[in-house]
Write a protein that binds this DNA or RNA. Sequence first.
DNA 1: TCGAATTAGTCACTAACTGATACTAAAGTC
DNA 2: GACTTTAGTATCAGTTAGTGACTAATTCGA
Lengths: 226, 226
Amino acid sequence: MSTARHASAPFTVDLVVLTALTSELAVLLEKGKGNSGRWTLPWRLPVRSESLNAVSGRLAVSAVGSKAAWIEQLGAFGDGRAHPSLVQLSVAFVAAVPHEMAGPERGFHWFPVRDLPPLAPRHRSMVEAAIERLRMAVDRAPIAFRLLPPRFTLTELQQMYELLLGKRLHKASFRRSLQAASLVTATDEWRSEGRGRPAQLYTFAPKRKNRPARGVRFDLLGGTGV
Amino acid sequence: MSTARHASAPFTVDLVVLTALTSELAVLLEKGKGNSGRWTLPWRLPVRSESLNAVSGRLAVSAVGSKAAWIEQLGAFGDGRAHPSLVQLSVAFVAAVPHEMAGPERGFHWFPVRDLPPLAPRHRSMVEAAIERLRMAVDRAPIAFRLLPPRFTLTELQQMYELLLGKRLHKASFRRSLQAASLVTATDEWRSEGRGRPAQLYTFAPKRKNRPARGVRFDLLGGTGV
DNA sequence: TCGAATTAGTCACTAACTGATACTAAAGTC
DNA sequence: GACTTTAGTATCAGTTAGTGACTAATTCGA
C-alpha cells in the first residue's frame, strides 16, 4: 500500500452505475481525474461526518444528473487491489438508472459491460460484484420497472428482465407470474411499433400481497464452493 | 463524530459470530475493552496492508478458538451511529460456528439474539443485518451442515434449518427436496434418542448438480418498500 | 386487394412441486 | 401387551412452471 494521507476521510466511496443500453448492460465510467487518464468508476473522498448513503446518493446525482432509480451498498473493497486514489479502503455502491434519463454529465461515458476499458483492479472487482448484486436484487426490488418509462408494453418489460438477468424468458410463463403478482395494470392505450399487432400499454401499480414463503431451496446449493 | 486519530488503519473490522444455541440463534459478545464495560461485538483496528478477509478470519479465530464454518462480509457501517472505537467507519463480517466447537475464549459470551444486552447503535444494526444475511445465505451455502457434527439425523438437520430460518418446515417436503438435491448420503448407523424409533445417521456429501434456473420471482417483490 | 410476414396475446397440456394427512416402523413406558 | 413417542414413507389434491401451438392485429409487398 502507498502512504497517501490527506485531510478528508481515509476511504473513498465508489459507485457502479448500471443501465440498460440498447440490448446490453452498461456501466458509467469517468475520464480519470489524476494519473494516467484512464477510465475509472466515479468515486469521491467524503468529508468527515457525511453519511455513506448521502455521499453515494450525491455521487450518483453528480454523475447522471438525477436521483438513481435504485441504489444499494455493495460492501467494502480493499485487500491490496489497486485503486486510483491510493487509499486503502473503498466502500462501493451499486445503482441503476434508466438510460433515457438526462444523459451522463460531461466527462462520463457509458460502456457495455462486455467491453470495458482497462480499469483499476479494485474497480474491476466492484463491477463484477455489482452485476451479480443487481441480478440478485432484480426480483426483490422493482428495478426493471424503474428503468422503464411510466407506460410500457409487456414485451418491453420482459426484454428488460432478460437484459438484467442475462437470460431468455418464456413469454407465457413471464406473463402468468406477472399476473399472479398483480404488479401492473393495463391502460386503454395501445402502441403500434412498426410491423406486427400493436401492444397494450401497462403501468406499474403493485398491490401488496403476502409472500408465499417457500421451503428450503437446496437446489441453490449445487453451484459454488460446497 | 469524534476526533479520535490513532496510528493504525482508520476503520475497524467488526464481527458478528452467530451460532445455534439450544433452540435459538445466539451472538458472540465481548466484555467491552475500554469505556463503560458494556458488551460489544468483537472488533479490531487492523494494521495497514492487512486484507479485510485476513483480519476478519483471525478475529474469528481469536474469539471462538477455531476457524469459522462460514464467514462473509456484511458491508460498511458508519453514518453517525456510535461505535465503541469512536472511529468513523466499520467493516462488518458475519460468521457462523457450531456451538459445540471449542467454546468461546475468555471474556466472550453467547447471547440469544432475542435477549441482547445494550449495544452500541452501530453494533445493533450490524446484528440485525447479520441475521438477515445469514437467512439469505442459508440456501446458497451449506451453513446448516457445517453447524452440525459430521453425522446427523435428518430431524436434527431440519431443526437446524428451522432455527436458522426462524420458521417451521414441513417434514415430508423438507426430505423430498433434500433428496432431490442429493446432498446427503445415509450411513448404516442409527441413533436411539430416548423414546421413539431410532433415527438413521447421514453425512453431508454433495454431488454437483446444475441449477434449475427458474424464471422471474415476482412474488418476492411484494414484501418491502415497493 | 390479398396474402405473407411479423409481433402481441392466450390457451391447453404436461411435468413438477407443495402441503397436508394418513399411514407403517421401531423403540420406550406402564 | 397396550399405549405413547419419534422416524420415515405413501398418497392425494391443489398449485405452479415450462412448452408449443394457437388466435389477433397490424405492415409490407406483390
